[in-house]
Amino acid sequence: MAAALNRAAFFTAVRGKPFGGSLSQGQVSGMESLLDACPPLLGTDALAYCLATAFHETARTMLPVKEYGGEAYYRRMYDPQGERPAVAKTLGNTAPGDGVKFAGRGYVQLTGRANYRRATGELQALGILDRTMDLTATPDMALVPDVAAAIMFRGMAEGWFTGRKLSQYFGAGVTNATGARAIINGSDKAYEIAGHFQAFRAALVAAQHVPGGVTPVPIPPVTVGPLVPPIPRNSGVLPPVMPIPAPTVPEPKPGLRAGILARLRAAYPPKA
């Protein structure tokens, strides 16, 4: 998995819009995680909207965050003993304390025991988590950028959060960046996020994003000139054989999923 585009061109473009002229290392590393986790066939418009959503939901940091509000807020809003038990039930929160334990985390604020359970199964099936890793047991794993990115793309594509999916708003001649806010949160800040979508889309186009394509490789400048001094006709001298340089093959990038698993095992060792 990874988006096929010229990343240098992408970061140059987004530095101007929507980031206003500068990027922090955190913002760059967060977007790297998102581009690495992007399903290769995801369309340019859909990817731009996912990036715009992350931009908004993380307050421009592009790093996974935990929903603001504090424990009292989580208990009141999401706990089965709080003020909205029907909402808690919909989220799968059944035990006292579930509201706090399964508060929103990540790029799109994964919330509720049921969503953490679903995300665990989906990411285990993808090989991003192994069978010893369970988000319902260790919810803070949803704050790991690689995990949070996979949750965002999978969840927005499959309608985990509200039942609405990316395919309903992008593709087959349809682009509805304002309506797409319903994938995450009704119509809250829909026009603002649609503006961010336009900036990210322009950056992806400038970076030659191609769904299902191969990441463009920069081609060094070619110096044009005679290879050897000209040889007079009928001199009986054969031109020297010019050696053909061996192609330069870049070192293979370590497997993305293997790298994620290694980092997760280091941060969250299996319990004895």
Rank of each mutant, 00 (worst) to 15 (best):
E251P: 01
E57D: 07
P96C: 07
Y191S: 10
E71Q: 11
R75G: 00
Q124C: 03
I260S: 00
P252S: 08
M141Q: 14
A2L: 05
L41N: 10
L227F: 03
L238R: 10
Y49C: 05
T136D: 01
A37P: 04
A13D: 09
R15N: 12
A142H: 04
R164Y: 07
V65C: 01
L34C: 08
V214Y: 00
E67I: 06
V87L: 15
L41G: 03
T223P: 00
K271G: 11
L166R: 09
A114V: 08
P218M: 06
T111H: 12
G92I: 11
R233L: 13
P139L: 08
L63Q: 14
A125L: 07
A190W: 12
G26Y: 04
P96R: 06
R15M: 14
A2Y: 10
R60I: 00
P39A: 03
R201N: 13
Y107Q: 06
Q81L: 14
K189C: 02
T178S: 03
K101A: 10
V65L: 02
R118P: 03
L261E: 08
G82E: 02
Y49E: 02
D79M: 06
A266Q: 15
Y169A: 05
V214K: 08
Q27L: 11
F19K: 06
P226Y: 11
Q198S: 14
I244N: 09
A86Y: 03
G212K: 00
P39Q: 03
A262P: 00
D146F: 04
P250C: 08
T223D: 02
A48F: 06
T138L: 04
F161N: 04
Y74I: 06
A207E: 07
A182Q: 15
G97T: 12
T178L: 04
E192V: 15
R117F: 05
V237K: 14
A206E: 08
A182T: 06
S33C: 13
P220A: 12
I260C: 01
A272E: 14
L41D: 13
Q109G: 09
T248F: 05
D36G: 01
G97R: 13
V210S: 10
V228A: 11
G106E: 10
P85K: 09
Y68M: 08
P218Q: 04
L41Q: 15
L5H: 07
T175S: 13
N6R: 11
G195W: 02
